[in-house]
Amino acid sequence: MKNELFDALDQLEKEKGISKDMLIDAIEAALITAYKKNFGSSQNVKVIINRDNGSVKVYSRKEVVENVENDLFEISLEEAKKIDPNYEIADIIEEEVTPRNFGRIAAQTAKQVVVQRIREAERSVIFQEYANRESEIVTGIIQRISKGTVYINLGRIEALLLPNEQIQGEIYKQGSRIKTYIVEVKKTTKGPQIQVSRTHPGLVKRLFELEVPEIHDGIVEIKGISREAGSRTKIAVYSADINIDPVGACVGQRGVRVQNIVDELKGEKIDIIKWDKDPAIFISNSLSPSKVLKVEINDENEKSALVVVPDYQLSLAIGKEGQNARLAAKLTGWKIDIKSESQYKGE
């Protein structure tokens, strides 16, 4: 078994970085199980692979005791001394019990262990690669759809787009390319499992980083995102450079930058908001596209504010089913009470 096995182990150590000694230890452990299974033995044994000539030998191991209770694991001091007068209580006696046809079994077992360890090593490499890419965007090809879950081929591994991470109403077609956001990379018995999302706010953040060089370079900063996937997103941006218009940078010339992101999100509306350290200004900006007449900070500790808008803008400020107000509150972290001008004056 020497040449074939040891040459293969040397190759694996060079190419895959799998320790040769660790592999031999693993093969020896597997051979103990194989010996017991194939030869119906329950005795305590160990297997030694000779590192020089590749020979495989099986040894039974028995402890020297005063009174034998189980002769599979124990030998009396009297019997031990017949083998060697120097044996004492608690010594371990090893006797070779290698079966005549054990070489064939050893070769098969070694192959199985090596294949398994290669698979484990490759899984570990893939896990490390993608574990370091959590919170990033990946592009893949939709492989199949089963029971609502979309399986996406990323090249060396499949990613899972679960139903609760899918944009409602979005159609996924087998063979089409898709961008997703890596939510979690988990180790499982079947190897690494990558869970991705189309609904996570992080997807919008990463798309802006890809599309807007000023964000990628740190000139424009994303301060917050609130999103109702498939419908509307609000994103707050800021630049410390007074010569840079952060909103304009994100919109792009003739709106091309934001339009590319809207297209990727299949028509999801995006409001780009200018962040401000003054909460009143930030709240006012966050209710875009509605105009705001006045913001009154009611309680800074409770983070509650009253916003007054023109009468004709009230429904726009609140939004369909309250969406605009809800996203603004989530973006700013403030509780926002919106009133029309006539409601405010009539109090």
Rank of each mutant, 00 (worst) to 15 (best):
M1P: 09
K2Y: 12
K2A: 07
N3Y: 12
D7T: 15
D10T: 14
L12Q: 03
K14P: 03
E15S: 14
I18F: 06
D21V: 13
M22Y: 11
I27S: 01
I27W: 00
A29Y: 08
I32N: 08
G40C: 09
S41H: 06
Q43W: 08
N44M: 10
D52I: 12
G54H: 01
V56E: 06
K62I: 06
E66S: 12
V68F: 05
N70P: 08
E74I: 14
L77F: 06
I83L: 14
D84N: 15
N86D: 15
E94Y: 07
T98K: 07
N101K: 09
N101C: 06
I105C: 07
I105N: 01
A106M: 06
A107S: 13
Q112R: 10
V114H: 07
A121N: 10
E122H: 05
S124W: 07
V125M: 08
I126H: 04
I126K: 05
E129K: 15
V138T: 09
T139C: 12
I141Q: 08
R144L: 10
G148V: 11
E158C: 09
A159K: 00
L161G: 00
L162N: 08
P163A: 09
G169K: 12
I178F: 09
I178P: 01
V183G: 00
E184L: 13
K186E: 13
T188S: 09
T189I: 11
P201M: 08
L203V: 08
V204I: 14
V212I: 15
I215D: 00
I215C: 04
I219E: 07
V220Y: 00
I222P: 05
I225Y: 03
E228I: 03
E228F: 04
S231I: 15
R232W: 03
K234I: 05
I235Q: 01
S239F: 03
N243E: 12
P246E: 03
Q253L: 13
R254N: 14
V256S: 12
V258R: 02
V262D: 02
G267V: 07
I270W: 01
I273V: 11
W275Y: 14
D276V: 05
D278E: 14
S284K: 02
S288I: 02
S288Q: 09
S290R: 04
K291E: 09
V295H: 06
N301D: 15
A305K: 01
V307G: 03
V308E: 03
P310G: 01
D311F: 02
Y312H: 15
Q313N: 10
S315E: 09
G319E: 02
E321G: 01
G322A: 04
N324I: 10
K330P: 01
K330M: 11
W334E: 02
K335S: 08
I338P: 00
E341A: 13
Q343I: 06
K345H: 08
E347K: 15
E347V: 11
